[in-house]
Computed example of a mutant assay.
Amino acid sequence: MKSLLISARRSSGFWPAIIRPAACSLAISTFAAFLCSSASADTIGNVILEDYKGAVATPDGGADAREIRFQDQVMALDTVETGEEGATSMRFLDETRFDVGPNAMVKLDDFVFDPISAIGAGKISMAVGAFRYVGGNMKSEENVKLITPTSTMTIRGTELIIFVGLDGTTEINVIEGAVEVQPCDKPVAAMATAGQRVIVPLTCQAVVTTSRPVTDVTDLDVPADLADFATAAGGDDGGDGGDGGEGGGPGDKEGKNRGDEGTDPEPDPPAPDPEPPASETDPNENGDDNL
Results as ranks from 00 to 15, higher is better:
Asp42His: 14
Ala118Gly: 05
Ser38Cys: 00
Phe34Arg: 10
Gln73Ile: 15
Glu95Gly: 03
Ala41Pro: 05
Asp64Val: 15
Ala104Ile: 08
Phe113Leu: 02
Tyr52Glu: 04
Arg132Met: 11
Ala65Asn: 05
Lys107Asp: 15
Ser38Gln: 01
Lys53Trp: 08
Val134Ala: 02
Asp78Gln: 14
Val56Lys: 13
Glu84Met: 08
Phe111Lys: 06
Phe34His: 06
Ala41Cys: 07
Ser29Asn: 09
Ala23Pro: 00
Gly45Phe: 06
Ser89His: 10
Glu67Trp: 06
Ala118Lys: 12
Lys123Met: 09
Ile48Asp: 02
Tyr133Ala: 06
Cys36Phe: 12
Met90Asp: 07
Val80Met: 02
Asp78Tyr: 14
Ser40Asp: 12
Thr43Val: 10
Val112Asp: 02
Ile116Ala: 10
Ile119Glu: 11
Leu93Trp: 05
Val128Glu: 02
Asp110Leu: 10
Leu77Asp: 14
Pro115Glu: 03
Ser117Pro: 02
Met126Trp: 04
Leu49Glu: 06
Arg91Ser: 12
Cys24Asn: 08
Ala41Lys: 05
Phe131Ile: 14
Val56His: 07
Gly86Tyr: 07
Ser125Cys: 12
Ile68His: 05
Arg97Thr: 15
Ala33Ser: 11
Asp51Ser: 15
Thr88Ile: 14
Ser40Trp: 08
Gly83Glu: 02
Ile116Asn: 11
Ile48Pro: 04
Thr96Val: 14
Ala33Asn: 11
Asp60Glu: 09
Ala104Phe: 08
Ser37Arg: 12
Ile48Lys: 03
